[in-house]
Design a protein around this nucleic acid. Sequence first.
DNA 1: ACCATAACTGAACGCCTGTTCAGTTCAAGA
DNA 2: TCTTGAACTGAACAGGCGTTCAGTTATGGT
Lengths: 197, 197
Amino acid sequence: MARKTGSHSQTTGPRVRAAAATLFARHGFAAVSMRQIAAEVGVQAGALYLYTPDKQTLLFDLMQSHLEELLAAWGAEPKGDAPCGRLVAFVRFHIGFHLARPEAVFIAYMELRNLSPENFRAIEALRHRYEDALEGILRAGQADGSFHIPDTRLATMALIAMLTGVTNWYREGGRLARAEVEAIYCDMALKAVGATG
Amino acid sequence: MARKTGSHSQTTGPRVRAAAATLFARHGFAAVSMRQIAAEVGVQAGALYLYTPDKQTLLFDLMQSHLEELLAAWGAEPKGDAPCGRLVAFVRFHIGFHLARPEAVFIAYMELRNLSPENFRAIEALRHRYEDALEGILRAGQADGSFHIPDTRLATMALIAMLTGVTNWYREGGRLARAEVEAIYCDMALKAVGATG
DNA sequence: ACCATAACTGAACGCCTGTTCAGTTCAAGA
DNA sequence: TCTTGAACTGAACAGGCGTTCAGTTATGGT
């Protein structure tokens, strides 16, 4: 037997990525075998190699496309001029974007150590660009007096850690709706950077 | 051949745990083999089973003892009565304790999904007790008017995520000394909970 | 000096790993 | 209708996995 009826590269490729994302997020990259991914897709393990050169690249591609999507989405986000408004936009965007893709977020934060050195550098560079977006806002606010921050780099790291932490405990249908969470985190973020007004 | 000269259970046991901690933190639980741990200790793989019933328990014991140490250390920490002072004490304690044991922290936060269900519950319970310690401070401050927090549970999760994030970027001998980092985070934490004064 | 036993080895168990590849099947283009 | 090649199978590769255990050795107590 070979090739099932009605099969197409165009659907199998994405399904491989989706299955890998789900399994990597749930059990971790190292704990998931190519055969498990293949079974999830409904295919033999060998067929996966039509869609990825190897397991490592499969992981890298998931992380890279997640971070590129993140940067593109933030770039397309409408944001005002004033640092306060931009910070609020960032907080809402970050929480919304991350809560919408818990699997990708989990992988991007947990599987860094499973990347080869060169892949790691590429991912780190993308992540750094995102951090810089927030730091730019904080610096602008510091410069025009809207914020009062002892150290913009530390505040950047602190805020991102705080915001990303939401994905660790938020559950759809829980005590608070997403909009309430966003509002509360906006409040805390603004206070933390000593926003005036 | 068997039993090397000068070998003792009392030294080998801790060395197994130390080697496991280092390797788990660096490569992840699933990616580390018992043979690698044994090699690090300078022993054959079979000898590890004199010190742990299996690999899973080795992980669990590392996490459990880390969290119990954390709770005991916080219990022994001198802390004032006023919520502001207690929050400052918590921030300094948390950062100090975590920066002193980066491996254990990494494992405790990254390897939760590799625990068996019952082991997971036990670890979660310990972690919850620690979170409650912070939430108690925030609630006390909310009650006596020192803090202004929309939601104490969310603020708890936000602060812990923010503080623990330090371990992701802090490097000994970097731009800022540990005390400076602690001071800056105290400032941000107090602001974030709307501390008066 | 001797012995009991704690500490450890080395080989084996069955099973799983990522990856390759010759062979098979189906769908679409001519 | 025939042919071509994309899509996929199934078996194999060499090696690694966690764990067990009979056997060996050094040590502390007598």
